[in-house]
Write a protein that binds this DNA or RNA. Sequence first.
DNA 1: ATGGCTTGCACCGCAAGA
Length: 260
Amino acid sequence: MKIASWNVNSLKVRLPHLTQWLADAQPDIVALQETKMEDGKFPVDELAAVGYRAVFSGQKTYNGVAILTREQTCGAPSDIVTDIPGLDDPQRRILAATVGDLRVVDLYVVNGKAVGDEKYAYKLDWLAKVRDFLADELARHPQLIVLGDFNICPDDRDVYDPIAWGEDILCSPPERAGLQAITALGLHDSFRLFEADAGHFSWWDYRQAGFRRNLGLRIDLILISDTLKSIAKAATIDREPRRWERPSDHTPVLLELDTK
DNA sequence: ATGGCTTGCACCGCAAGA
């Protein structure tokens, strides 16, 4: 079973990229972020035509998350959650669903703008509330996968120039502590189960030829519970869609599980 | 470098992203 996460940076612009990539990679479950699309405009029919069901929580202009499931291999998603205790939030950043035996939580973590900004305080509070929600999810669903755009570099290996980034936004100790509080629940960064080296990224700035020069960050993560860790087979980053015309600034990250 | 690209909105120059 193949599970992926991709921040598409506008599903309207990236729908052709998405359908091409679904055909190429044939993932079973795909979590999307930054769809920037109201639910009434979600391309349900276009995705059904290529064999995927969709659940989504979107809004105009900003944010927006979705989970796609391959009809051929997955049952219909159930037990959908879009809002969590303690966060009375119009921003559509959270989407949980049960797909077969798996519980899937798709997150578009707050960016935070800059350390000390009011959006930064919102980010830290948001992370703490999400941690509590995930503790509860894990208690009920041992086969838990938490994936998405975390907008946090887990450690210096995930930053192209850790000296330059220092303790700035995406790398600050309180943000990393917020992520660690989540992984401390017993959720493992699946990419690091298979790759220890620095220099593997999932996002590159559009400016200054960031992708060509590999000036990137690894901020898109797939976290898995202990139960799933024991059947994790591979975790990879697919850089191919970042090479296409008019790409998202993020590229898909993947996890393969040894199921049945 | 409070820069650079890209997107959406809306009316064309902003905010926001990371």
